[in-house]
């Protein structure tokens, strides 16, 4: 164990997080672990959801935003409906991921981040998600094994008539793009 030097602590991090919908109540977390015990992905995480909350409160910004844990959440909200203090860990994970991407903490190897960004790109293009475009673009990004892993599913779906080949589009696509531009946080590089 290493000494936690006080200069590693970013005291403003907690306030940064409490500004998000998911961060509003984390000051009252009683560290009971209900979130982790309810989480089907907790076993895959380097830090459990409870610990992530404590790390946010302690100001361990870098450790939290570079963790694998925040990308494991499947957004099932089991923690959120059970939290005895009304905290919404699912929404907290959204906030942490968003900050990790904006501020450049997120590793380019993080599949989920790549996928989510690809999703946003497709959405930006059509206003809707065209599954073949999404799967295709994602499959060819970065990791070549990904393509191999996904191929059987894609072929199967195609064969079963589960892939609509012509993208469906939003007519007023400008509206969608404007919405995205207006509400998407600005990218800030980590110092």
């Amino acid at each position: 164990m290493e000494l936690l030097h006080e200069d590693q602590v970013e005291r403003s991090f907690l306030e940064e997080i409490t500004a998000y919908p998911g961060g509003q109540k984390i000051r009252s977390c009683q560290q009971c672990g209900t979130c982790s015990g309810s989480c089907q992905m907790a076993g895959e995480m380097d830090y459990t959801p409870r610990k992530i909350i404590e790390m946010v409160r302690a100001g361990l910004k870098r450790e939290v935003l570079t963790s694998k844990a925040i990308w494991q959440c499947v957004s099932c909200y089991a923690c959120t409906v059970r939290c005895p203090r009304g905290i919404m860990p699912t929404e907290l994970m959204y906030a942490l991921r968003s900050i990790a991407i904006q501020q450049g903490y997120c590793s380019s190897q993080e599949d989920s981040a790549v996928f989510y960004n690809t999703f946003c790109d497709v959405l930006h293009k059509y206003g809707r998600i065209h599954e073949p475009t999404l799967m295709g673009t994602f499959a060819f990004k970065g990791n070549p094994f990904r393509l191999m892993g996904m191929a059987p599913l894609g072929v199967g779906m195609l064969f079963k008539g589960k892939l609509g080949l012509i993208p469906s589009r939003v007519a007023n696509i400008d509206e969608v793009r404007k919405l995205m531009a207006l509400t998407r946080p600005k990218e800030v590089k980590a110092s």
Binding site: Y94, A113, R184
Partner: peptide, 25 residues
């Protein structure tokens, strides 16, 4: 008419309020 994607988990993860705005549209 002219509905758009709700944003789902991916947009919420990149920009938590964007998915809300998309749904609101």
């Amino acid at each position: 008419k002219d509905w758009n994607c709700c944003g789902s988990t991916p947009v919420s993860s990149v920009a938590p309020v964007t998915s809300m705005a998309l749904s609101a549209r």
